[in-house]
Design a protein around this nucleic acid. Structure first.
Lengths: 380, 380
DNA sequence: CGAATTTAGCAACAGCGTTGCGTAATAGGG
DNA sequence: CCCTATTACGCAACGCTGTTGCTAAATTCG
């Protein structure tokens, strides 16, 4: 995609993003804070802060007077300097949120979607919902774009919905492209769970380690944050956590296998045994910890949040007893800090992240082979 | 740890590493190949190639004469310009290999380790084994260091063995440090499975996507390569794939849970039913694909390779039938290309990767908080 | 042999962080 | 009140990247 050529200008964006990430987490900081956090020289930090201040992303917020010496200027992020709109497209509802640069949700609204809706119907709902937001808020030039979090399978890199589960009119729909022309705004498309974990990571800033967002909402999915970025897998298809087998020779699942976590969980939930459903989910969570060694488990999704304390207790219990414990091995389990807004808010933050987040270098993936080297003709 | 300050000199190393990665995969390339692959200007590529050639890492290998115009100079990696030694420390054996810059194994030897060996005994075995290698090969100044792949749990970042499973004398042993002084060489310590997947990734170069190395050797583990680097998890404890539950209320496992993949698999294997053992493993592999969406599955480990074709067939079968198939969803399953040498070779390649691999930027992890900002005293 | 074509390199340049050093702002002591 | 120590901050020159503009070299073809 966007090839990041590793030239000098990359450094500017990278170091600026480091400062922005710091500003998002600590709310107030000074030059020496950045020096400690980044390893840059004070002089370089001065330049970075000057640039960001000139762009309106940062502003001075008083001084620190620790005792002897000249007081240090304290800076803070300007949350209202940039906004993004996030959309959570579920099977029957569309949720829209307005998020600022600090990750605060300023507005949230749900509207119903027609059963088995078409791309056109979704675009119209998006358009009117977004118009309502931009109409009642003064965002002139500060709206970065629109993020869409949606059920998969989809192709994040190309903005393509391949086959949304349970929606008939969604085969190979280039949603990002048509939404961009329809809305006149940059659009970012991703799986719902991936958007969700991005929300948690964005709000926590650089302190956030490897994590998973478990979402129970008609199905069971997982969004992963590994090594400082969202993990989407080779085909944007990571996260089908509900379709991992936990009971060999268990009941058949729609996916064709037997004893999937999702089917076992749902049977228990449908039988009214929330305790067992939660414990089954907890087994899956511990499986993830054993496999990936995560430091955060975030629980979300309408069906889970309806019995939030049951699930939280069961997962915490399992994490603390089933994983071979040691003092150095710690994982915290929490409910999503954004509740029902996580997915939509995370989609919005992905847009902000694209512009103001810490950038990746050129992905080491293969370019289209120009075929240059294959003509052979090599001669010693 | 090693803070990578995002200054200009970082670019040099980064772009050089891109060229080296290319050279490792294509064996022969020219300036325009690099231009296409990196997005740099031809002039910049000339400078990079000149630097690498001066260091002896690259050399011209003829010219390409495609027709009209001045012939292009063809370059190739100089495999014998750098070497690293890799060690695979298992419960009863020590395997040592010599690997060159291209990832080719030049020497491999196994020696027995005393039952329940101590750190001192391991160091002595390492020392004499490495002396044998350096004695019979002329490596003056071209030996980059020693990599150790070992059973965990351990702390990769600090080079600390926390509690090697089944070895009594290994609690909080600072192996990297003591090995460096004992051997007089830079030492890199990592989990065996993580070293293994690094071997596969290093040899495949930039084309290698998200992948797992499944290792069956007394236990069952998994090494992950995600997003262009090894995934070690929050506490270097990722990969305990054998301790994921696949059979709720199954037989008890040493880890305290019931129905772990490892115990179910081992019961089948011990009963002589390799077919079932392989199918159980395959269920676990498909679980991983559903969760992480990987493009490569590599099978390794002595117990697996003993029945390689059974396992390969079972996993391939499961991958091609159990994952909801689509043309865009492809995963290839292979046996480890290095056989029993994977772990040791991968450990060696980690050392080479540290110097000649594509570097990460400063990890967005928290520095020790200097406490600077907490004194408050902020005043508007 | 000259024109067209492709590759390669020299030289000047722009943009990044770094280094050296001077200046501003504060508290404490004589 | 002045002087000093201390801390924060910025200007200016510098070194190092990759980039741009332009020239030279090597080859094929007419």
């Amino acid at each position: 995609m966007t090839r990041t050529t590793a030239d000098v200008t990359f450094l500017r964006g990278y170091n600026q993003a480091l400062v922005m990430a710091l500003g998002r987490t600590v709310r107030t900081f000074e030059r020496s804070t950045v020096v400690d956090a980044t390893g840059l020289t004070p002089q370089a930090v001065s330049k970075v802060i000057a640039r960001l201040t000139a762009d309106g992303l940062l502003r001075p917020a008083g001084v620190r007077r620790p005792g002897i010496g000249k007081p240090a200027v304290v800076y803070e992020l300007v949350p209202e300097s940039r906004y993004a709109i996030g959309a959570h497209v579920a099977r029957r509802t569309l949720r829209l949120v307005l998020v600022d640069l600090a990750g605060t949700v300023h507005y949230s609204a749900v509207s119903p979607l027609p059963g088995d809706f078409t791309p056109e119907q979704l675009l119209d709902a998006l358009k009117s919902g977004i118009d309502a937001i931009t109409g009642s808020n003064d965002l002139d030039g500060r709206l970065t774009g629109v993020g869409i979090g949606m059920i998969g399978p989809l192709d994040h890199a190309n903005g393509l919905v391949r086959d949304a589960h349970g929606l008939r009119h969604w085969h190979d729909v280039p949603l990002r492209e048509i939404a961009e022309t329809h809305l006149g705004l940059p659009v970012h498309l991703d799986k719902d769970v991936t958007a969700g974990i991005t929300a948690e990571a964005w709000r926590h800033g650089g302190t956030f380690g490897d994590a998973v967002l478990i979402m129970v909402e008609s199905g069971i999915g997982g969004g992963f944050w590994l090594g400082g970025t969202a993990h989407r897998g080779a085909h944007t298809n990571a996260g089908e956590f509900g379709h991992t087998v936990v009971e060999l020779d268990g009941p058949p699942c729609v996916c064709g296998r037997h004893g999937c976590l999702e089917i076992v969980h749902n049977h228990a939930a449908e039988a009214g045994d929330i305790g067992r459903a939660a414990r089954v989910l907890a087994v899956g969570v511990v499986n993830l910890l054993q496999t990936l060694d995560l430091s955060h488990v975030v629980l979300a999704g309408a069906d889970l949040l309806r019995h939030a304390q049951h699930y939280l207790a069961a997962v915490e219990e399992a994490v603390h007893t089933d994983v071979p414990r040691a003092d150095w091995l710690s994982t915290d389990v929490t409910l999503s800090s954004l509740g029902a807004d996580v997915i939509a808010a995370g989609a919005a933050m992905q847009v902000l992240d694209k512009h103001y987040g810490v950038p990746d270098l050129a992905p080491p993936q293969r370019q289209r082979s120009a075929g240059r080297d294959r003509h052979s003709g090599v001669k010693i």
